[in-house]
């Protein structure tokens, strides 16, 4: 159980798969609960630009891996650029460590269960000895709690 190469988080949302899909992909919604927008056409193989705190991150390696609307979404994680590190207040040492770690990927599975959706996040391919796994373990419950609140409110 000390495997730090991946992390999984499950929650259940009172909504339709279409509403949860929209919350994962619509920049107007991700901005509200994540402070992040993802600029892409959500087709498999398409590039993605990330924007957080006014910093735009572009890299050809940031791509949509799988896109099966209302069922499954997967994409590679963003590059840790110096501009990103500055905007979120990372010190130089931490920024350098993150920039050196391998690129991770996330996938979301949406399964309807009665009048709810079971949302499963799998964040994978972490460097076992890296620092990103711990940071994401802290962040995902907060991000997905925010998504659930936003979707159930609307």
């Amino acid at each position: 159980m000390s495997d730090n190469s991946s992390l999984e988080y499950v929650t259940h949302i009172q909504a339709t798969p279409e509403q949860v899909w929209r919350a994962l992909t619509d920049p107007g919604m991700t901005a509200q609960y994540w402070g992040t927008t993802l600029d892409t056409d959500w087709r498999a193989g398409s590039p993605m630009a990330w924007e957080q705190l006014g910093v735009r991150i572009e890299d050809p390696a940031q791509v949509v891996l799988e896109s099966d609307p209302h069922r499954r979404l997967s994409y590679t994680w963003h590059t840790f650029t110096p501009e990103f590190a500055t905007s979120v207040g990372l010190d130089q040492e931490l920024a350098a460590r993150l920039a050196a770690e391998r690129r991770t990927k996330v996938s979301f599975d949406l399964e309807p269960q009665g009048n709810t959706v079971k949302l499963t996040l799998l964040h994978d391919d972490f460097d076992q000895a890296g620092v990103l796994h711990g940071m994401c373990s802290e962040a995902w419950p907060q991000i997905l709690a925010g998504l659930k609140t936003l979707v159930e409110k609307s």
Binding site: T11, H12, I13, Q14, T116, T149, E152, K153
Partner: peptide, 21 residues
């Protein structure tokens, strides 16, 4: 995961997850 999701829904919206779930 289900219990906490249902608890959160109840406290935030007044409606828990359905018993069927």
């Amino acid at each position: 995961a289900k219990v906490f999701a249902s608890l959160k829904s109840l406290l935030e919206t007044g409606a828990p997850l359905s018993a069927a779930v």
